[in-house]
Nucleic acid binder design. Structure first.
Lengths: 145, 145
DNA sequence: TTTTTTGCAAACCGTTTGCATAACG
DNA sequence: CGTTATGCAAACGGTTTGCAAAAAA
């Protein structure tokens, strides 16, 4: 499910009720890409439908996880959610500038395979950002030039 | 610095004072391997020297980070510390059974190099656990046999 | 009208802070 | 004795909970 209406329909189908809050929260979430944090939603909601309580947001996130639209992630220090069906990329987070870059999961296939071959461990990079140093910062840190 | 006395000496050298609490906390930390969480220390301290206040633990962690004995990490959802000089391994955390396995950083060298070649991003796997599925769980999940 | 959902307020957990007291050097 | 470290209590931010009131079906 990639769009708001489909999610709302699924909620109805399961006997959940439609409320302006729920509509707004789901719409906000479906409009977000990548990492979804409860507090982000709370903030963005200020414009769309002011006065929505934090706990309503948390409860809606739980609900969406229950029906499989979202799942948990751990990106660095902040835990959060992501779209369950959009797990086709990984985040590369730079330690220095903090910028995040997405790369498609396919680019990591051979990396994953090699790790698996060596250790038997099948890595799932989509559930965790990879931290390191981006090419920009690496250039800036280079002593000469 | 890998042992308690060396750390305590370094603290003295810098003009910090020795207290039973500080000794106990540092000893506890130096005895820990891998991921070091404030709450773990608080708990373990119950035996060694009961009554030490949480804030003392937090302040000591700050202090040890200041003098370079510890540094921050992000392991999954819980942030914490690790020994600054023991950064030679990575944790593989299994999504299913939760077990953590350490592998030496060298085993990931080629993985890191390949990622770098493809993306220009220099991954530092020591600051973040890699999540996935361990070989045990993979066997158990295998449909037949 | 029944049942779900909401807002509110309180509680929670881990962490941080200010301040008076204790203790190191 | 001067100064640092500690304990305590209060505050914090993000999250969770119980409950009464509001709203959906």
């Amino acid at each position: 499910m990639q769009n708001t209406d489909a999610v709302l329909d699924e909620l109805k189908r399961r006997g959940h009720r439609m409320t302006p809050q729920r509509r707004a929260i789901v719409a906000e979430i479906m409009a977000m890409a990548g990492h979804i944090s409860p507090q982000d939603i709370v903030q963005r909601l200020e414009d769309r439908l002011p006065g929505v309580n934090d706990s309503t947001v948390y409860r809606t996130l739980d609900l969406l996880e229950e029906i499989g639209v979202l799942s948990h992630t751990h990106f660095g220090t902040s835990s959060g959610y992501h779209h369950a069906e959009r797990l086709d990329h990984t985040h590369l987070v730079c330690n220095r500038c903090g910028r995040t870059r997405q790369i498609h999961i396919e680019a990591l296939a051979s990396v994953r395979d090699e790790l698996e071959e060596k250790t038997g461990f099948l890595a799932d990079f989509t559930h965790q950002a990879i931290s390191g140093l981006c090419s920009n910062c690496r250039e800036q840190l280079r002593p000469s030039d």
